[in-house]
Design a protein around this nucleic acid. Sequence first.
DNA 1: TGCGGTCATCTGGTCCGACCAGTTTCGTTA
DNA 2: TAACGAAACTGGTCGGACCAGATGACCGCA
Lengths: 236, 236
Amino acid sequence: MNRIEKHTVTNREKFINAMIRDILSGRWNPGDKLPSQREFAEKMGIGKTVIQSGFEHLAAMGLVEIKPKSGIYVADYMKTGNIETLNAIVQLNGSELGREVIVGILDLRLAIEGTALRALSLCRTSEDVLRLRSLTEDIRECSVDVGLEELAERFFLWHREICILSGKPILTLFMNTMHDVSIAFWVRYLGMYGLDFAVDRLDRFIDFIEARDGNGAYDLLAAGIADYLDRLENQA
Amino acid sequence: MNRIEKHTVTNREKFINAMIRDILSGRWNPGDKLPSQREFAEKMGIGKTVIQSGFEHLAAMGLVEIKPKSGIYVADYMKTGNIETLNAIVQLNGSELGREVIVGILDLRLAIEGTALRALSLCRTSEDVLRLRSLTEDIRECSVDVGLEELAERFFLWHREICILSGKPILTLFMNTMHDVSIAFWVRYLGMYGLDFAVDRLDRFIDFIEARDGNGAYDLLAAGIADYLDRLENQA
DNA sequence: TGCGGTCATCTGGTCCGACCAGTTTCGTTA
DNA sequence: TAACGAAACTGGTCGGACCAGATGACCGCA
């Protein structure tokens, strides 16, 4: 692991994590009015500012709705939530994601990365190809030294590079938005297929890009995702 | 407008907005080290906490990178930014979005909503259809009373309802993630095609869904997006 | 002259208690 | 009974105090 010796947990984090757990586990229901910031502060024996800051964070994750000067309510997060909500769910449930959630995520990934692959295949330069090959080599080399999380991060960066090189900066922004969720996915993927298989696939992507075969690259991605879902189906 | 009488602008917002402007306009460049929080605080004559809170927000938008105990640096936001970065850009540039940005956004929208349309066409109940017709009617009725922004919000909610009813909650989360960007899009769209055309299209979507014709609904969406991009091309 | 260690100074991070301005509630008054 | 208004809430803002890690200049030793 890379962040074992996590800095001492602050009161703010303690509060946030407790609230995430309580809300996602159903201790409170959407629409419920929460106790006031002052009550939370008193109960935890800390200042109100800390609670305020924590609620700001929870609101950004779409878990609560703050009505100024009135109160704070549990949000109907599956309706009003955003990608941060998904991150919170992924973080809490670890690898225990439902198939439905995974399908949704992969639909999006195919859309984002498929578009990038097609665009890059059209506009790629020889430098682009070299860059990707070099990244692939790095992954192969470092694979014995680093942990699973770090490897997942490398795979994420490899695929993000596709977006960056494709000349479609918006796709890169979306890719980054899905960072946390993607890491959870890659950890699972690497555990399921093994590193060698995964790295070989990267090479095949590069081959398609080098040959300017955008559809080939897209189909490879689509087939990979379909196979992944099949395995998930069968193992469950 | 819905929020004209905006609450008095706080120091925190003043600072954040000034920084967004300075960074996006290129006053600072990616990698530059910013003055310390204390310097900013002194210069503005306010407390350091406000600056700290503001920088936290800027970091969440992907505009700056905070290196604890060291300093705060301008991020290479087109590489490391996320959807919040895009929101900031949209907010600053208003309707002056580049074609490239719009294409990227619409690619994603087709992916998200196209998937939802197909799914809903398969699983729709008669209540779903009634619900959508009722929403459409609401838009038609309120169209004379409300401003353009409010109308754009209604169109957003209509399309979000597709995701909600489709039984794919992840799509809803993504849809919400794109809320701010979508509003900017709808304002533009309504100005370009007019309200009547836009509402009629909603009816056509419902017809396809009622007939359980997922591909038809998808094609309608794809054709609409393609036409929009054509117009954009020709007018520029 | 060059190297290594030490310590003051700088950074961001956390926290508190006071204050502000709307909202809500409830008792008083017409 | 209905309208009013004050008091008791609510979340939001703010400045100053303190913490711990990073930094870098400075001093002493080889």
